[in-house]
């Protein structure tokens, strides 16, 4: 039984002239690390809003088809019920922070889940340290830099350790080293606790290596859905304008020049290994 399943999901925002997502039928298994990508405006955020009930409970509009998340029919369960299972890091971190201090912001979701005091303290500390924001814990969220806000938004979801973690372009405000470290933490949660991760991202150089499932959307539709290596290396992905990892791109360009690397690299380590081999053999 998939943890997320949609069937023929079509959604039109109130007042919009056409659907923002169309006939989306996907299955996400428990414990998968999914990358969801595609051109700006293709419907990624809209689809994610269906996973935590913002659609149809907050954004009204017209919804057709079915959405099931953690055995719940999203249309029949309220946002706060779904929040027990699904954590969401918004594309714009500012829209997520409202408490008077960083620490209180991270505590907020845990309080709502009824987490015991002692455990709460532990989790807050762990999450803030994991994103490198522990020193900021007493600061007001609106007095932070963009990336510091993003770190706090991520910490509040990490602290919850929900069954499903949705991150909508979390790296856009993060410095690269912090992004790398945070992904290592998320990958660990994914591996060890079986947390399902759905990552919306345009920049795949840092994250492709963690994915075991890639979904690409274009103009509201799912156009590619499957194995990362096959998808990143496909002609379709490039034509849609997906920013495939540079390691993969280099391999494609070399292939045009008659140099064939057998397995498709999606990380720098894989590319370096493959290049070393052909440089030695030649």
């Amino acid at each position: 039984m998939p943890i997320i399943e949609t069937k023929d999901l079509t959604y039109t925002y109130q007042g919009a002239t056409k659907p923002s997502i169309r006939e989306v039928s996907i299955k996400i298994e428990k414990g998968e690390f999914v990358i969801l990508t595609g051109p700006s405006g293709c419907g990624k955020t809209t689809l994610c809003r269906c996973f935590n009930g913002l659609i149809p409970h907050f954004y009204t509009g017209t919804l057709n088809g079915t959405i099931n998340v953690a055995n719940l029919d999203v249309t029949k369960h309220q946002i706060h019920e779904l929040a027990r299972h699904v954590g969401f890091v918004f594309q714009n971190p500012e829209n997520q922070l409202f408490a008077l201090s960083v620490e209180k912001d991270v505590a907020f979701a845990l309080e709502n889940l009824g987490t015991p005091r002692a455990e709460m303290q532990e989790r807050i500390e762990w999450a803030l340290k994991a994103v490198g924001a522990y020193e900021l814990r007493e600061r007001a969220p609106h007095e932070l830099s963009g990336g510091q806000q993003q770190r706090v938004a991520i910490a509040s979801v990490l602290a919850m350790q929900p069954n499903v973690m949705i991150l909508d372009e979390p790296t856009s405000f993060l410095d690269p080293l912090t992004a790398k470290k945070i992904f290592e933490v998320i990958a660990e949660l994914n591996e060890q606790l079986g947390i399902t991760v759905i990552l919306v991202e345009h920049r795949l150089d840092l994250t492709a290596q963690y994915a075991d499932h890639v979904i690409i959307m274009d103009e509201g539709k799912v156009v590619l859905d499957g194995n990362p290596r096959d998808i990143f290396n496909s002609e379709e992905a490039r034509l849609i304008g997906v920013g495939i990892p540079k390691a993969t791109r280099l391999f494609q360009i070399l292939k045009e020049d008659g140099i064939n690397i057998k397995s498709v690299p999606i990380s720098s380590a894989e590319a370096a290994k493959a290049l070393r081999r052909i440089l030695k053999h030649d």
Partner: peptide, 21 residues
């Protein structure tokens, strides 16, 4: 780069790993 919390571009990472060549 480490000091400034930046990761080298992926292509540069590949060549850093091949620096002995």
């Amino acid at each position: 780069l480490t000091k400034a919390s930046i990761v080298p571009p992926q292509i540069s990472q590949i060549f850093l790993q091949l620096s002995d060549l």
